[in-house]
Design a protein around this nucleic acid. Sequence first.
DNA 1: GTGGTCTAGACCACC
DNA 2: GTGGTCTAGACCACG
Lengths: 123, 123, 123, 123
Amino acid sequence: MTDGFNATQPIYLQLLQKVIIQIVRGDLKTGEKLPSVRELGAQFKVNPNTVQRAYAELERLAVVETRRGLGTFVTEDKACLNQLREQLKHEKIDTFIQDMKEMGFNAVEIIAGLSEHLNDKSN
Amino acid sequence: MTDGFNATQPIYLQLLQKVIIQIVRGDLKTGEKLPSVRELGAQFKVNPNTVQRAYAELERLAVVETRRGLGTFVTEDKACLNQLREQLKHEKIDTFIQDMKEMGFNAVEIIAGLSEHLNDKSN
Amino acid sequence: MTDGFNATQPIYLQLLQKVIIQIVRGDLKTGEKLPSVRELGAQFKVNPNTVQRAYAELERLAVVETRRGLGTFVTEDKACLNQLREQLKHEKIDTFIQDMKEMGFNAVEIIAGLSEHLNDKSN
Amino acid sequence: MTDGFNATQPIYLQLLQKVIIQIVRGDLKTGEKLPSVRELGAQFKVNPNTVQRAYAELERLAVVETRRGLGTFVTEDKACLNQLREQLKHEKIDTFIQDMKEMGFNAVEIIAGLSEHLNDKSN
DNA sequence: GTGGTCTAGACCACC
DNA sequence: GTGGTCTAGACCACG
């Protein structure tokens, strides 16, 4: 367990999620250059190969494009990014609701529990 | 693999979660006998050893106890089970909120998105 | 895990040790009758078969003899019992010393650690 | 079985103890790499899976950490190791005293018997 | 019948 | 190369 990585999930998937989150948040803006595989590898104490796999997967998802000799960049296609953001949001919410119902909680309890937690941490 | 298993997570952990959910929901009541490792293995088309591993983890979590030659049973300790249910609920909610905030949504958006989804599916 | 039994060691061996201890302490005197397999089984919530195995082993060690239709009795041979007591004592001490040395403690440390613990619990 | 293993205790637990002893003695130093599961398996004529099980337990005890693709290493946390050594020492002494008292020996007899044995083997 | 351990041999992800 | 998971099939202790 090098850095902050879960043992059960492949590291490259966890990296992928980290990058996606940065994009969705807007920390990485459209067209912006991602760190090189070597940089990111060094940063997370991870083999560059592993970063490479994450980047390849991101390219397959079309949220990133690599330009030979220049590096890897967030896609210029804003619609795609917006769609990504919406899609992730819906997925997260859906699986959350599904999990909670599976555990025997109904809609009211879910909302109640959630509000409680949101209040705890102010905001 | 064979049945309804995710490829990225070990089968024995997925089995473990299935059992925990059944316990938390009350489908498996306190003191009730779990299916034998061979039965559950057959049911999920999985090796009995794999089930065994899940059961061993459950015992380590104290939600289950095994009686030699008799089988594996949900613990009689109701307090432990209630605690488990609460703990799981809080964990799920916490990681959900954390994930959503990480993606750049604030409390209001989270509640709004959630309500929307809950309405979609009636209930 | 019915009563106070260790999961890793066969129950019949643990029973055997319990009986031997009672004999060595003198709680079960020479010639005295042991409880029936059914009694002891009931007392420890254990199958009479298991008790039977423990008794058979005790007979093999010659510390016990069974008389048809009467029951199981501690041997009349006091020399044998004294020898048993001495033997157990030496074994226990030997394996204790061996274990401690294996862990890197020398004679002085062993005595010191032991005295400390004996004082803790008064006596 | 094959090598120097007790029949009544699971091999993986005996392996675990062997490793713990090596760590406690300082034969395996902090941060040092343990043999691979295949190596140790070959050395003890035991299946790598069995070694793996021992290593997994060690990790659960936090005395060892595994680094993906690199191997298994003694934890860097010296405090943890010192605590382990002290804990094992106290446990060993405690169960020894308890066993001896159970057999009817008092503090004086225990110390006497022990000194005798320590002198026998010189040192 | 039950769970617990072990083996042989396989495949995977990661380095 | 490393550890992690899984299977098939075996044997054991216990009830």
